[in-house]
Design a protein around this nucleic acid. Structure first.
Lengths: 194, 194
DNA sequence: CTGTTTTTGGTACCTGGTACTAATTATATT
DNA sequence: AATATAATTAGTACCAGGTACCAAAAACAG
């Protein structure tokens, strides 16, 4: 039997799954199914094949072995939690909406949190020491409420010299809540004053 | 009203409950109900009165504690300080740039802080209980550094039903650093689910 | 014996799973 | 093109450890 293309995809997906969980053990099967764009059943099959324990177990392990926790690529620079980053091409981050992000009169969060997540992800995806946003065009498709998890995907659409066009789409479950197009400039270290 | 015997028991039980959870946060309500010889409902009542979160939350807190919650954006309703507001027509706010808004490699602040100031000002300028941003088109004219004061001016350009077009221009001294156009929707209280 | 507090019981619902079966889709081989 | 096989998805029943709510029972004070 020859190696099938789908098998390659499966192995690659499983490698990615392991990477994601190593960098962030707090991802649920649902998060992973959204990140990897497969059904939740597939994630469970993968986890089973890879002998990766369930969410509760992972959290317990981290909680009971404080020294072990590798913690996320939470660079502090980023709004949200980076779960994947292929510098120069794409990135994914997850933002868990907390009550203090919301407007007092509703449970809806203020738009600039979604913007911040998308903008910082877009900037992080650029392969440059320093990147600054020049122009952005964003659309808030529907309000986001407390407790929801926002998954943002960034994709570099175009690179021209030091200019990048990055498109970010943010989802809650499978619903698009935000779309943004960012024109970002890479800045060389020498160009910075002082 | 005199102190009842049962009240004493209750207070004592709650003190013991706290002690047990302090020494072992991984006790479930069922464990506690067996330790303290009361029903599980009583334990839940006690936890509620003592504002002690549930098992899952406790485990998550312990697991995530190593260096978390870096606080990204101000938690107030408005980003920046409102210095003038004519509801329904215009507004001005001032944002003093602090070092934690900056990228580590430069003194430049990340664009989403300017966006947040402009967006929250635009929303505040609308004469409505609740307003949500629909579309925004923003331009970052030049980077802003630590220590600078950003003055944002919002002007309602157009009102059509519940839709508003607000233009925000932000300055450092007399220099324009940011321009944004926001399409904002006023929402009536009844339209919000729950 | 009555009124109030405290405790208990029960239901419906939630998340993040396990365990299992069956159907569907994709791909490879004949 | 038909078929075998791998991979994926869908669906069900069940579990722990809860939340939220309501009603009933028990404990106790006056």
């Amino acid at each position: 039997m020859k190696v099938r293309r789908i098998v390659v995809n499966k192995a690659e997906r499983q490698r990615r799954l392991v990477r994601f969980l190593e960098s962030d053990p707090f991802l649920t099967d649902e998060d992973l199914s959204q990140i990897l764009r497969v059904s939740i059943q597939t994630i469970r099959l993968d986890r089973f094949e890879l002998k990766i324990p369930e969410f509760k177990e992972r959290v317990l392990t981290v909680a009971k072995n404080p020294g072990l926790s590798p913690r996320t690529l939470s660079s502090g620079e980023l709004v949200g939690e980076m779960v994947d980053l292929e510098v120069g091409s794409s990135g994914i981050s997850i933002l868990t909406v907390t009550p203090e992000m919301a407007l007092s009169k509703t449970s809806y969060i203020r738009g600039h949190h979604l913007f911040a997540q998308a903008n910082s992800l877009a900037v992080a995806a650029i392969d440059a020491e320093i990147a600054l946003t020049g122009i952005a065009r964003v659309t808030f498709k529907r309000p986001v409420s407390c407790g929801e998890k926002v998954l943002a995907r960034a994709l570099i659409k175009l690179k021209k010299g030091n200019k990048y066009m990055v498109k970010v789409t943010s989802y809650v479950k499978d619903e698009v809540v935000f779309v943004g197009r960012f024109l970002i400039f890479a800045v060389t270290e020498e160009a910075i004053p002082q």
